[in-house]
């Protein structure tokens, strides 16, 4: 389990990774490194394979080829038990929050703590109370996921993802389906959590405001060439990148 005070280094290294389903390759030869403590954004238009890439990194889909390193461990080259060990060091917020509908918000956040720690039920309650307060959901402990709004569900999903103090937080389209106000609140929350929990965030999104608000570094995926066509700080990319596809994507449009 992570201690929150560790040295700076690269947490994830993706090397020549090709991802896809069975025979069809969606992205090929993707390589990048994610520095510790940064918000790393995977961006690109709809259908470019952002979520598939994320699912390959978090161990849900096996890669067609290439490697994903967590520290020194090659995730797809180690045994299932070691893989589970690595999986416990990260938290994931899924696109639809994926809260368990038969459990209350409190029970959703408490489940990983019950499974993987020896804390007493009272101590678990304390940790859950802190995590829910961190995402601004104090008072909603006894509510079921269907009883709260989409934005709250996403925040509850984040509270569950950070339940075990992960080293890395994966966010799949965190602002999708939210109104601008809630989307910006979620961006602020991601920023604050990165700051106070010293967690590295890997975020998949095509929300421009999010990219500029929280992204330290981005990679841009292209559906046509099925590869990564740019990487760097989003503001610098907008200023310096010559590729029209990237510029078109990153230029805000106002009618």
């Amino acid at each position: 389990m992570v201690t929150l005070n560790e040295d700076k280094n690269t947490v994830i290294r993706v090397k020549d990774l090709s991802v896809g389903y069975q025979d069809s390759v969606i992205l090929h030869d993707i390589s990048f490194e994610v520095p510790k403590g940064e918000v790393f954004v995977i961006m690109g238009g709809s259908g470019c394979g952002k979520t598939t890439l994320l699912k390959t990194i978090i161990g849900l889909i096996a890669p067609v080829k290439g490697k994903v390193f967590f520290g020194k461990n090659d995730f797809w080259g180690i045994g299932p038990e070691e893989q589970i060990g690595i999986m416990r060091t990260f938290g994931v917020l899924y696109q639809g929050a994926a809260l368990w509908s038969s459990l209350t918000i409190e029970e959703n956040v408490a489940l990983p703590l019950q499974m993987f720690t020896n804390l007493s039920s009272q101590q678990i309650k304390e940790v859950v109370s802190l995590k829910l307060a961190l995402v601004g959901l104090s008072g909603f402990e006894d509510f079921y996921p269907e009883q709260i709004s989409g934005g709250m569900r996403k925040r509850a999903g984040i509270a569950r993802a950070i339940a075990l103090d992960p080293k890395i937080l994966f966010l799949d389209e965190p602002t999708a389906g939210l109104d601008p106000l809630n989307a910006r609140m979620l961006d602020d929350l991601v920023r604050q959590l990165t700051d106070v929990l010293r967690v590295t965030v890997i975020m998949v999104t095509h929300d421009l405001e999010s990219i500029f608000a929280v992204g330290d570094e981005v990679i841009f995926l292209d559906a046509e060439t099925k590869t990564m066509i740019a990487s760097g700080n989003p503001k610098e990319l907008l200023r310096n990148c010559k590729d029209s596809r990237v510029i078109n994507f990153l230029t805000p449009r106002r009618s």
């Binding site: 929150l4 005070n5 802190l130 829910l132 307060a133 961190l134 995402v135 601004g136 959901l137 104090s138 008072g139 909603f140 402990e141 006894d142 509510f143 604050q192 959590l193 700051d195 106070v196 929990l197 010293r198």
Partner: peptide
């Protein structure tokens, strides 16, 4: 870091007060 964490949690306490 711990102070920041507590401050964020306390601000979350007052953000939305809802009867359970």
């Amino acid at each position: 870091g711990l102070l920041k964490l507590l401050r964020l949690a306390e601000s979350g306490m007052h953000r939305e007060k809802v009867k359970s």
